[in-house]
Amino acid sequence: MLIDGLSLLLLIAGMIFFLAGTLGVLRFPDVYTRLHALTKADNVGLGLIVAALALQAPAWAVVGKLILVWLLVLVASTLSCHLVARTAQRRGVTPWQ
């Protein structure tokens, strides 16, 4: 019961971060600030969802697999973030002031 409550809390927190990430991507003024919102908020959101699911996981291997998925997304999105930012800079997209 306690664990269910904690999972629920973590899930809701994760959803809020995903919402914030998407809102940031829609509202922020240029590609760099959007990357900030996307990378940071979504990774924290996914981390919280992974934590919530790990609490409910039937076996330790499943916990490990969830963490593995999170780590892969972490690596993939930091890499994408850096590459997209670099591309934008080299293409001469000036940062919004």
Partner: peptide, 24 residues
């Protein structure tokens, strides 16, 4: 620190004023 970063950027994205002062 990444948790702090997430909270920080989420606050900026959710607040109506959208407080940003970017710089390089």
């Amino acid at each position: 620190r990444s948790l702090v970063g997430g909270v920080d950027v989420a606050r900026r994205a959710l607040s109506p004023a959208r407080p940003l002062q970017p710089a390089v």
